[in-house]
């Protein structure tokens, strides 16, 4: 039974691993920290998995556990060092479809995202993942109106970072 559970879980995680990678990408800025956070989220997902009833989609459930781990449970390990350009080096943006201005803009946007605080990052993450305000508010535990207001503020904040 346990083996079967383990097998199912690993299969699902393998399939949806990009969600976890995306959380790690947003909350860490070097290779070691990325792996550490990925590891911690995996453990938290696995610990919570027996209670996963399948009412929600596995991916939706992963968002919640992943973000909660990143903003609440994860303790940055000491070996993490700040390497600012990590994002650009580690994950090459395949920007063939964009012209130079757009590519440049994207680079700046990703940089600006890293400057946001943990809560703002979580909201932006859900927004980028095309979650509606109801889902965002349920995941964060705030009201829908507050989520909307906050998101508008973040947009302004990002605009200020991009055009000082």
């Amino acid at each position: 039974m346990n083996k079967e559970l383990e097998h199912n879980f690993v299969e699902l995680l393998e399939k949806h691993q990009n969600i976890v990678h995306k959380v790690c990408r947003l909350y860490t800025n070097n290779y070691d920290a990325h792996n550490d956070l990925f590891q911690e989220i995996t453990i938290q997902l696995w610990k919570a998995y027996p209670k996963f009833r399948g009412e929600a989609k596995f991916s939706t459930w992963m968002y919640r556990v992943g973000l909660n781990t990143a903003i609440t449970l994860y303790r940055k390990s000491k070996r993490s060092i700040n390497t600012q350009e990590f994002d650009l080096v580690q994950f090459k943006i395949k920007a063939d479809d964009y012209d130079n201005t757009e590519e440049e803009q994207l680079k700046l946007m990703y940089k600006a995202l890293h400057q946001l605080n943990d809560i703002d990052k979580a909201l932006v993450f859900l927004y980028l993942e095309d979650k509606n305000y109801k889902e965002i508010s349920e995941t964060m535990g705030i009201s829908e109106v507050n989520a909307r207001v906050k998101m508008n503020r973040i947009k302004t904040k990002l605009r200020t970072i991009l055009n000082p």
Binding site: N18, H21, K22, Y98, Q105, M109, L128
Partner: peptide, 17 residues
């Protein structure tokens, strides 16, 4: 800008491990 980012983000065209 954010819409552009959203489009890029959802493309899954990043080399994740």
């Amino acid at each position: 800008e954010l819409e552009l980012l959203k489009k890029d983000w959802q493309k899954d065209n990043i080399d994740y491990p």
